[in-house]
Design a protein around this nucleic acid. Sequence first.
DNA 1: TGCCGAATTGAAGATTTCTTCAATTGCTGC
DNA 2: GCAGCAATTGAAGAAATCTTCAATTCGGCA
Lengths: 133, 133
Amino acid sequence: MPVPLYQAKAEFFRMLGHPVRIRVLELLQDGPMPVRDLLTNIEVERSNLSQQLAVLRRSGIVTSVREADTVVYSLAGPDVAELLGAARRILTELITGQQDLLDELRAAQPADTLSRADLSRAGLSRAGLSGTR
Amino acid sequence: MPVPLYQAKAEFFRMLGHPVRIRVLELLQDGPMPVRDLLTNIEVERSNLSQQLAVLRRSGIVTSVREADTVVYSLAGPDVAELLGAARRILTELITGQQDLLDELRAAQPADTLSRADLSRAGLSRAGLSGTR
DNA sequence: TGCCGAATTGAAGATTTCTTCAATTGCTGC
DNA sequence: GCAGCAATTGAAGAAATCTTCAATTCGGCA
């Protein structure tokens, strides 16, 4: 009895939902890389990195091979760049969209009279994506 | 002081990491839809759906407009389909990849002699993406 | 064999996210 | 105004994920 597709998709996105795991995938886009190098590029404890690598391995999006005294990781498939690209496109779209709206609001009235409703329209009533500024 | 981009990306993917939220985005790809209809298409309690819609709204990926006694949701931008498409591509790639590997293993030796190492190579030693069969 | 560094694993506590319920808001029609 | 339906909100307990530490595995080398 197969798991519904939308649930597999959700799991997949959750697998991507961690800063360290994103960094790893980005670094691996330039080619295979040993754990040692990942470690120098990402600011994180060794065992924490291992935990995140284990998550990526379990999902199948990366593979690892032992070479002498180091372990080398690679992307399992070619489509990862495309995915991260699409994500960045949407992300910048969201961010600039909200910025534009805020600019409009500021132009239309003094900054200190922005109403709760205005902020709400801009998607900022409670912290949205925290990188949006 | 802006939040690092990879953190914003991680938040973005986490925002997508829920079955109900995925369903909503898929349904909205065909055009705006009132909450009422979302509710008949997705098997979930009304207030739970509201919570998930709130998450999507906060991130800015959807917008809502009140029309008479109903609320209508729409996608905020055009790139969502592309993102979900890329995700599905990778997902099927991962799934068929693992299936192929398993098939190879089964062909090479009786099923009941698969070693832990074999399963591990196939990314299945501990439950991977649960939809992978 | 025994030791060393590299990497992974298991487990525990802290943090975050999910689900659910009751209460609330907004609109329509009586 | 107020009764009734649609949708959202706040809050609390349950469940999942993160971080960290100690212990373990694996290969290389004296």
